[in-house]
Design a binder for these strands. Sequence first.
DNA 1: TGAGCAACGTTATAACATTACTTATCTTCA
DNA 2: TGAAGATAAGTAATGTTATAACGTTGCTCA
Lengths: 181, 181
Amino acid sequence: MALQLIRPQPCTDPKCRGQHAPAERVALAKSLCGTRGVQLTELRRQILELLWESGRPTGAYELIEVLKLRRPRPVWPPTVYRALEFLICQGFVWKIESRNAYVPCAHPERQRDCLFFICTNCGATAELEDLRVEQLLAENATVLGYRVKRRVVEVEGTCARCIAAGAAGAEKGGARWKVGI
Amino acid sequence: MALQLIRPQPCTDPKCRGQHAPAERVALAKSLCGTRGVQLTELRRQILELLWESGRPTGAYELIEVLKLRRPRPVWPPTVYRALEFLICQGFVWKIESRNAYVPCAHPERQRDCLFFICTNCGATAELEDLRVEQLLAENATVLGYRVKRRVVEVEGTCARCIAAGAAGAEKGGARWKVGI
DNA sequence: TGAGCAACGTTATAACATTACTTATCTTCA
DNA sequence: TGAAGATAAGTAATGTTATAACGTTGCTCA
């Protein structure tokens, strides 16, 4: 059951102009798991790959659909949610709270909270770090007396491609998986 | 069916050290609705009041429970979601995306995106504006070529009171409504 | 050889949200 | 007055997202 559509994707972090192939990112995750003494099992690997292939925030139930087609036996929600929890804990995946959907993390080796820019038209998601934002949030937290655990920064808008295409509410989809074989 | 527990709450925006009573905030909403030519109906007003009373992000189904007790006839999800949509559109309520829950807006007259600091222990939520954060996000959006529509900034942590109380995962609740009469 | 553990399977259900259609209420103007 | 239109709310059903609770598998290691 070979995977389809493994192709490079531009890294959306301006600090990293390179290109990342999903396979390469999955290999990095595998390697980090080795270092950390945890397992990137087949299911976990498969979910991480699917997220890389998708190219947009993807819901758990969408993943379940695809996994049902690609795996010998059907997969149920708790299984997928457990795998997602693992991937999130290890820093390989982010949850986009404003969409109840998941995206792969471009730089799991970094382990910092990121900002996300999400195109409401095509779903394209850009992930980046900005320490200045983190600093401002920390500063505000101090003023309020809060001890920070997690930052959720999600900016919804329209991406450059969709602006160029004049799209401001036309299509809704985004990438789709080639399923089967 | 008079409301209980209408008491002042500290404004969590450092730019505004005053105290806001829920009743006063509801009156402001009423007045703004008048100006805008829209109606703050009984149901909408009641939901806004409940959110002010609650003192923490409150889910739609929790509101439904209370409304079922306080209103002559039961209330169903679409009714509440419609009212919430109205309140959000008018800037009287925010949705906390990371919790699928709702909080009243301390300054509906302002109409800007806010930052939220949410205590994972007691639910206390601080709302504030920081133009510097907005600017940084705008700057990043420009670099990425995104046109910004909405910002979601939610910082999870522990509030000063819970830190002082040594609580780092004990209770889970927060304010509760006095229901009835 | 069976205790301990991590991962996954399975059923059921909780929690959050929307669709589609109906009914009520209010306004306005012929 | 009362018909037409607009706005809001009622209701049943359903869709979507997430977790609880318990069982099974397969591996490791004493």
